[in-house]
């Protein structure tokens, strides 16, 4: 279960037709739930654990989890992008609950909540 979507945190990016997490997945694995508009993982077995979807979510609603065969519950790794967008703080929580923070320089580009798709009418990908 490499990526878990916390449905209570997902706000559908205010009804975005083509939200950032869907755009950032290189494997075309995140999709909108046709009923609720919230994000679903198409197939956990296809996930590369690369985390762009996790980092880009404005609600921090997507969490990365190691497949259980590779690591014990409930260690967590939560990236927090600073408002200035030039630092990212990774909150690492081990199986005992101890927290360690790593703050690293970066250059996170601003991302629109919605985007048109070249050659595709909005009706084809909106729900």
């Amino acid at each position: 279960m490499p990526v878990v979507v916390h449905a209570d945190k997902c706000n559908t990016c205010h009804g975005s037709h083509n939200p950032p997490c869907v755009r950032m997945c290189p494997g075309d694995l995140l999709m909108k739930d046709p009923k609720t508009g919230k994000i679903l993982m198409r197939d956990p077995a296809e996930c590369w654990d690369c985390l762009p979807c996790v980092k880009v979510c404005p609600q921090e609603a997507i969490e990365f989890r190691l497949s259980y065969q590779l690591g014990f519950h409930t260690a967590r790794l939560l990236p927090h992008i600073h408002d200035t967008r030039d630092f990212i703080t990774w909150e690492l929580i081990d199986t005992e609950g101890a927290i360690d923070n790593f703050t690293i320089r970066t250059k996170v580009l601003p991302v629109e909540l919605d985007e048109k798709i070249e050659g595709v009418a909005a009706v084809d990908f909106s729900i």
């Binding site: 990365f64 190691l66 690492l92 790593f102 690293i104």
Partner: peptide, 23 residues
């Protein structure tokens, strides 16, 4: 070791979680 983890976070974050999840 911390620097090593920082370097992995820039490229391969699951490495750092793996170490934490396996003590």
């Amino acid at each position: 070791a911390r620097d090593l983890k920082s370097a992995f976070l820039d490229m391969y974050p699951s490495m750092v979680l793996y170490w934490a999840a396996n003590e």
